[in-house]
């Protein structure tokens, strides 16, 4: 059987790659997707711990994380559409003012 540690290491690698994408990417949509990648990595760790301890709490938490991610995606993409409409660009370097 697969040791829990393997899942945790995979989760750490995915989180690290998500953080790299978050910092290195310049397109605001891709940055948003890297946040989703990090959330997924955390979900993997939740499920792995849930199985390792034989308790179902971790899986319930994953459901809450997914709901929050869905809400975040809806609002975030609305903001991205607004930025594109006001600045004609998706580059984050051009979004340097809070005022739209």
């Amino acid at each position: 059987m697969v040791p829990t540690q393997y899942y945790l290491i995979l989760s750490a690698i995915l989180f690290g790659l998500g953080a790299v994408a978050f910092v290195f990417k310049r397109n605001i949509i891709t940055i948003f997707m890297s946040i989703e990648l990090m959330l997924n990595a955390v979900n993997l760790a939740f499920v792995a711990f849930s199985q390792a301890f034989g308790k179902v709490h971790g899986q319930v938490f994953v459901l809450f994380v997914i709901v929050v991610a869905a809400a975040e995606a809806a609002v975030g993409l609305g903001i991205i559409i607004l930025i594109q409409r006001n600045r004609q660009s998706l580059n984050v370097e051009k979004v340097n003012l809070l005022k739209l």
Partner: peptide
């Protein structure tokens, strides 16, 4: 970035952990 990944991995993977391996129907 590599240091971050290593730090997270080192924090979650302790060698003496009493986690039993994931078998299919634990729950």
């Amino acid at each position: 970035a590599l240091a971050l990944t290593a730090a997270i991995a080192a924090a979650v993977v302790k060698p003496d952990q009493s986690l039993h391996p994931v078998t299919e129907p634990v729950i």
